[in-house]
Design a protein around this nucleic acid. Structure first.
Length: 258
DNA sequence: ATGTCAAATGGTATTTGA
């Protein structure tokens, strides 16, 4: 079973690329961020034609998260605690409980939005820490944090900036400490595996990237992961998102009988 | 102040956010 996470930066603007990607990649579950639309615009019908059930939490022009599934979709959970923004959605898809997360950007270290980001991550850790230990879970999304310097093309550029600060990295570590594995980093300990490149400055061509889109798996699910990768091809071509999809292939036969 | 993109606006450019 393949599970992907992808910040599409407007599902409306990205529809042709998303449709192409879904058609040419045999992915069972897709965690989407930044749909930037309401339910009335969300392409439920078109996705159904591609074989996906979908659940969406939209907020008009900003944010918006969704889950697409070919293996069932039930017990949908929308929103994180008392957060008023559309940044969190969960569902049960086959043997997995999955979550699509769009962590606040933070803007700058002295901005109120940075405090909102840290609180949001703390709330997420609290929420995930309360889950049942026998739950097979995939927490994916745009975390807007590069967990280590290996996840950043040039740490010197980011001194004093968001995405790399110690409190943000500690907040990611708190998520991990609820019993989750950053599967791409575990399987690729020495490669950067960037997932995002700024549209500006020819960043993609120059390999000026960050790894800020993560797939966090509980230990049992991580042990059943055959492979994981970033699909850089999706960042090329016409009208790409500034993020690439991240994919994990899980042998769910190892635990689906439980 | 960025070799950019996307959405919304009272709009044929600017603002906001990323």
């Amino acid at each position: 079973m393949k599970v992907a996470t992808w910040n599409v930066n407007s599902l409306n603007a990205r529809w042709v690329r998303v449709e192409e990607w879904l058609t040419s990649n045999d992915v069972d579950v897709v965690l989407i961020q930044e749909t930037k639309q309401n339910d009335t615009k969300f392409p439920f019908e078109q996705l159904a034609q591609l074989g996906y059930e979908s659940a969406h939490l939209g907020q008009g022009q900003w944010n918006g998260v969704a889950i697409l599934s070919k293996v069932g979709l039930s017990d949908v959970e929308r929103g994180l605690g008392d957060d008023v923004e559309a940044r969190f959605i969960g569902a049960t898809c086959g043997a997995l409980r999955v979550y699509s997360c769009y962590v606040p950007n933070g803007r700058s270290l002295d901005n109120d939005h940075y405090q909102y980001k840290l609180k949001w991550l703390a709330d997420l850790a609290h929420h995930l820490g309360a889950r049942a230990l026998d739950q097979r879970v995939v927490v994916g999304g745009d975390f807007n944090v590069a967990p280590s310097d290996l996840d950043c093309y040039d740490p010197s550029v980011f001194v004093g900036a968001t995405h790399v600060s110690e409190p943000e990295r500690a907040a990611i570590n708190n998520l991990i400490e609820t019993g989750l594995v950053d599967i791409v980093r575990q399987q690729h300990p020495d490669e950067p595996c960037y997932t995002w490149w700024d549209y500006r400055n020819g960043s993609f061509r120059r390999a000026w990237g960050l790894r800020i889109d993560l797939l966090l798996l509980d230990a049992v699910t991580a042990a059943a992961a055959r492979s994981s990768y970033v699909d850089r091809e999706a960042r090329k071509g016409e009208k790409p998102s500034d993020h690439a999809p991240v994919v994990v292939d899980i042998d769910t036969d190892q635990f689906s009988a439980a």
